[in-house]
Design a protein around this nucleic acid. Sequence first.
DNA 1: ACTTGCATTTCTTGCGGCGTAAATGCACAA
DNA 2: TTGTGCATTTACGCCGCAAGAAATGCAAGT
Lengths: 334, 334
Amino acid sequence: MGREGTHAAGRRGSRHEGAVPVQPMSDATKRLPGRVVTEATAAIAALVAEGTLKPGDRLLAQRLADRLGISRFPIGQAMRILAERGLLTADPGRGFSVATDGPCHAASFRAERGGGDLASAYFRIAEDRLSGALPEHISEQAMRDRYGLGRGQLAQLLNRMAGEGWAERRPGYGWRFSAVLTTPAALEQSYRLRLAIEPASLLEPGYRLDGNLLRQCREVELRMLDGEIETASADTLYERGVRFHEAIVGASGNPFFLDTLKRVNRIRRLLVYRSLADRSRYRQQAAEHLELLATLERGAQAEAAALLRAHLQGVMEKLSAVRPLLEAKSHPEG
Amino acid sequence: MGREGTHAAGRRGSRHEGAVPVQPMSDATKRLPGRVVTEATAAIAALVAEGTLKPGDRLLAQRLADRLGISRFPIGQAMRILAERGLLTADPGRGFSVATDGPCHAASFRAERGGGDLASAYFRIAEDRLSGALPEHISEQAMRDRYGLGRGQLAQLLNRMAGEGWAERRPGYGWRFSAVLTTPAALEQSYRLRLAIEPASLLEPGYRLDGNLLRQCREVELRMLDGEIETASADTLYERGVRFHEAIVGASGNPFFLDTLKRVNRIRRLLVYRSLADRSRYRQQAAEHLELLATLERGAQAEAAALLRAHLQGVMEKLSAVRPLLEAKSHPEG
DNA sequence: ACTTGCATTTCTTGCGGCGTAAATGCACAA
DNA sequence: TTGTGCATTTACGCCGCAAGAAATGCAAGT
């Protein structure tokens, strides 16, 4: 998806970010909604789409607000927007309820998720860094000018990068990008970390993979085998893999394992960015994922751990076969 | 109107932080030095103290600046300060050189490292959180008032906490502190992560523990056994342990392992904060550390990994014995 | 030629104001 | 009594200004 979104506009973008390019909008909802309203809108639409809310059901503002962890206000806004879109009907004085033809409309709300501005800058920076377009040392000022970011935004990004280990403050002014990402060994090293933690997480004392989650994971894998491997975008495929592994590890109940995995995955995303997704291997991966799920369902943790280890090792080997491709820009250092 | 507060002193501390309480200072160096100057001062003093620079040696500004990764300016300031302190002699027109009695003075420069203001707030927050004094949800405004922080400072802290996984933005306003830290199982879980990664790191392909580093580690452990266990502060003891393990893991050359360990250690520090340091166990720990070093020296990685595993497991068990003490405030949660 | 020491430039951070989004209180309707 | 709809209050993000602090350029000295 075009994550590059706004870049030219830059500075004056205020906070509304790229979200909700819905259409000119009629008079009642002229002002473009903020982040929370946008999310609430999507969330309610999702509830209708998945059938949790059926036609005729009345929507209680407070209830929804609690569920989403926000106040009633953005809920009201969201409902008004959805009513205009024909998903809900407004009963003046008695709030809103799901329209009879709501569910069909609901599908059109496919997560036009924004959040874009910052995320897009993040990826642009990473890409520039990997391609060598960004110098090793640079001042915040220069970064702001280059990417059209406000002070706070840039600070957020830099902190994140620092946390991820590929940028660091210089003693005086400015920042320094470390070489971690540009070395071809990084990807392999990230896999060795996963190899250490993922199987171990399956052996955690309280491990319990929720039945619902398991079913959900299985369905995704089946859909993949059923053709999505060919049709989905490379980004989506990556996302799917990440989600699977995070779900598996998350079921360990040990947040340290999960956080670590999430962390390494976020970086890995940058590393695989340039590796042409070789779709054929996804087929085998999906099969292995399914086998793993079956084993976990039986509660055979040790066996599952072994499978997972083998799975990761397999991926890693395939990977080192592609490695020459990545070494286009090898920075010998030492 | 909460906001105009400015209530406590806090605010006007500018950025110089608690550093360098050196003394009223004579006229030449009246203005208190900034962060970089302070660090440069300490660095140069250290060079003199450790004998890298001997009496009579001339100090070249550019050389030092390059070595520290900063510009010549703060170097000059630092040298002037040190000259006033009697560590260096000023040769007008020809810079500075080490004074004959420099080395004795140098010892008095024991890293009076500041950085304090923020760090102290960080620990106060963590403590309040652990003791339950801080509510689960809170707005930035309330935090600022509570801890007397500027907007930027607070933002920095919150970002850091978010990165460490124990605070997160709420959808609307305000922040939410996750339960990670308050659950009594957390400490144990953190050890299980370490158990997964530390031994594995010893088996990394390019593992190589530098001879110098090894010797240094050994010395520290010996000093510990030689009495420091009784005399050093609890904080220092913790620090020593962390450093040892990070050195060992860092020698794997895989930054992902090291980062993960650092990360978990930072959080662990908050978790052990209240556990009364039981000094007796440090003795055994030191012995095990030494044995580990010896094994690594022989290059017996697998054996070392086993030792490390046993070591961690031992610590963990001791820990679960103390656990009842920590459960003072157990938050059962569904 | 190399360095110092100063002057100038550049960068960063703190603070307060402003505009807008979200939270909250309240009156009123069902 | 419960819940809606609006008005009020509160919180937060962005911006500009100004004060330092660090980086850099330059002339003079050795």
